[in-house]
């Protein structure tokens, strides 16, 4: 474990806490893409298949349970919670995310570290996570004005993988046989998707103005 990875995990956790806060405090999920949240449930379930077989550390196991539990809770809330589901902007959340699932799985069948069930699903989860934010980014552009908590949620979500890139650079230089090219390349693509969001987020922060994404 290194400081970059720990910072990345904490930033990821903060993004989830901010989203839960928004939903529970405002009893609203307006501006949040249910499709992105569903993709994250698939990402975590596919990635943490080794939850009960490989014990790495208490921290690792606890964080996996937190990520799986929180992503399921958010999807349950947006689909089932009477007050919250009414605020879901279904007509703005129109990205056909099934293609993202299909494309990531096909790519995982082609590009993986080992052709085993667990490795295929691990690579699938890595590729899917890289594109999982797309429905949310498209929805933000459609909805125009972005409320603060939603903006902060997306910001922390993008920042966490940027910390992981620093972690991979650090491990590359400090560990002899470290090679995580699948996670690294996918992480670069994932962070790149946030580039324009980060730009408009920075502008809104600098001008102390509301976050506006160009339609």
């Amino acid at each position: 474990m290194n400081i970059f990875r720990f910072a990345g995990d904490m930033t990821h956790l903060i993004s989830i806490v901010v989203l839960l806060l928004k939903i529970y405090a405002t009893k609203s999920c307006s501006g949040i893409s249910l499709k992105t949240q569903e993709l994250y449930v698939i990402v975590f379930l596919a990635r943490y298949l080794d939850l009960f077989t490989d014990f790495i550390s208490v921290y690792n196991t606890v964080m996996k349970l937190v990520f799986i539990g929180s992503s399921l809770a958010i999807v349950w809330c947006m689909r089932m919670h009477r007050a919250v589901k009414r605020t879901y902007d279904k007509e703005l959340d129109t990205f056909r995310h099934y293609f993202l699932v299909l494309g990531s799985f096909v790519l995982a069948l082609l590009l993986h570290e080992k052709f085993t069930f667990q490795e295929i699903f691990w690579a699938f989860s890595i590729y899917l996570e890289a594109v999982a934010i797309l429905p949310q980014l498209v929805m933000l552009q459609r909805s125009g004005n972005v409320d603060n908590l939603t903006g902060q949620y997306v910001f922390f979500l993008g920042a966490y993988r940027a910390f992981y890139i620093l972690n991979w650079i650090y491990r590359f230089f400090t560990e002899p046989h470290f090679s995580r090219w699948i996670a690294c390349l996918s992480g670069l693509v994932q962070t790149a998707f946030y580039a324009d969001f980060f730009y408009y987020y920075f502008i809104s922060w600098k001008n102390n103005a509301k976050l506006q994404l160009p339609a």
């Binding site: 995990d9 080794d50 490989d54 790495i56 690792n60 570290e113 490795e119 992981y164 972690n167």
Partner: peptide, 10 residues
């Protein structure tokens, strides 16, 4: 044969 590297990252 690269050892099955356990994914120690989240």
């Amino acid at each position: 044969e690269s050892e099955a590297q356990v994914h120690d990252e989240l």
